Simulated assay, not measured.
Amino acid sequence: MLYQRKTLPDTNIGDPAPLPAALVGLSDASLADLSAALGVAADETGFAGQGFFPFTPEPPPPPPVDQLHKVDFLRLFTQAERIAIRQAAKVNPIVEDYQDMLDAATVIRLSDPDIQEGIPDLEDAGLIGPGRAAQILSGENP
């Protein structure tokens, strides 16, 4: 287990590391305030005013979303946006073609060139709100 060395009340000193050999076996409560736990020995060992705390690293961020089931892709749009796109497909052959391609897919890859080019076109046409193309292409729900 790694411990983070801190000056009290709460300033990190160095990188998380294993406990120094002289401190192995002390309870977490004793490690939290070495001056109180060790008394004069804390001064002698150079740990006065310091503590060691179990270190738990932050979990890594989830990998970026790229491949979605079609329904999960559609959930990236608001209901109003989905309705606007379907209405536009009735009168605009380009939107109709885009919708037809989407209907034919079972899985959507956000990195697909058609998706990368088409979503900003929907924003430019006012079918989705300003800034929504970037949110959708990053897999961010509304």
Rank of each mutant, 00 (worst) to 15 (best):
L38I: 01
G126V: 02
I83D: 15
I85P: 14
V107L: 04
L110D: 08
G51Y: 05
M1W: 01
P60K: 14
P113E: 01
P9D: 14
K6G: 02
A41W: 05
Q116Y: 01
Q135I: 00
I83W: 09
A105G: 00
L23A: 08
A36N: 06
G46Q: 07
F52E: 11
D66F: 04
I13S: 10
T11C: 12
G14V: 04
T7I: 08
Q135W: 00
L110K: 09
L122W: 04
V71L: 13
L127V: 02
A84E: 02
F47K: 02
I115M: 15
A125V: 01
G46N: 07
P16M: 10
G25T: 06
A22K: 13
I85F: 09
I128S: 12
E96Y: 00
P18F: 00
P93H: 03
P9V: 11
A48Y: 09
A37T: 04
P59Y: 05
K6F: 04
Q87R: 12
P113K: 03
L2H: 15
T45F: 14
F53S: 13
R75M: 03
S111L: 08
L38H: 03
A48N: 12
I128G: 12
L8V: 10
I94Y: 02
T7W: 10
L110E: 08
D121Q: 14
P64H: 03
G14E: 03
Q99M: 07
Q99L: 11
P63H: 07
T106P: 01
P64A: 10
G129P: 07
Q87A: 09
L122Y: 06
I115R: 14
P16N: 13
M1G: 13
L68A: 12
I128K: 10
P54K: 09
V65E: 01
P18S: 12
F77M: 10
